[in-house]
Simulated scan of single mutants.
Amino acid sequence: MNKAKKYSPEVRERAVRLVQERRGEYPSLWSAVESIAPKIGCSANTLHEWVKRAEVDGGTRPGTTSAEAQRIKELEREVKELRRANEILRTASAFFAQAELDRKLKS
C-alpha cells in the first residue's frame, strides 16, 4: 500500500508559483505542470490539483474556496452534534412524560 507523501505548505506554494510564472512558456497549463512536477518531486496530477486549488482560493477560477469548505465542514459537524442532542432531549422528554403519567395513574 502506497503512503501518500506530505508536502509542506511552503513547497506547495513554491510549486504553484513556479507553474504560474512559467505558464506562458508552455502551450497549456498541463504541459507546464508536467514539466515542473518532476523538479518538485510530486506527480503532475498532484501539482495540477494544487494549482487549481490556488486559482479557486485566489478567485480566478470558480469553485468553493478552502476557507468556505472548512466552514461548511465545521457547520456540518455542528448540525450533526445538535441533531444528536435533540434526539437525546426527545428521548429524555418522552421518558419523563411517561414517568409522570405512571405516577398520576398510581395515585
Score class of each variant (00 low, 15 high):
Glu74Ser: 09
Arg103Asp: 13
Pro38Phe: 04
Thr65Tyr: 02
Glu87Arg: 10
Asp57Glu: 09
Glu74Pro: 00
Leu47Asp: 04
Ala69Ile: 01
Ala97Gln: 15
Trp50Phe: 07
Arg23Pro: 02
Ala94Asp: 15
Val33Thr: 00
Ile88Ser: 08
Gln20Met: 12
Ser93Asn: 11
Asp102Val: 05
Val16Leu: 04
Pro62Ile: 07
Leu82Trp: 03
Lys5Leu: 12
Ile40Val: 15
Ala92Thr: 08
Leu105Gln: 15
Asn2Pro: 14
Phe95Lys: 14
Pro27Arg: 14
Glu81Lys: 04
Glu76Ala: 13
Arg61Tyr: 08
Lys39Tyr: 03
Asp102Ala: 13
Ser8Phe: 02
Ile36Gly: 01
Thr91Met: 04
Glu78Arg: 08
Arg14Val: 06
Asn45Asp: 10
Ser31Glu: 12
Gly41Leu: 05
Pro38Lys: 06
Val51Ile: 07
Val33Ser: 00
Val19Gly: 02
Thr91Glu: 14
Gly59Asn: 05
Arg14Ile: 05
Glu13Thr: 10
Ser66Thr: 15
Arg103Ala: 14
Ser28Ile: 03
Asn2Ala: 13
Gly59Lys: 03
Cys42Asn: 03
Glu68Met: 10
Arg61Gly: 05
Gly59Met: 03
Pro9Cys: 10
Arg23His: 09
Thr64Glu: 08
Asn86Gln: 08
Val16Ile: 11
Leu89Asn: 12
Leu47Arg: 01
Ala92Asp: 11
Thr46Ala: 09
Pro62Val: 13
Arg14Asn: 08
Gln20Leu: 14
Gln98Phe: 04
Val79Gly: 04
Val33Leu: 00
Arg83Trp: 06
Ala32Asn: 02
Ser66Cys: 04
Lys39Ser: 10
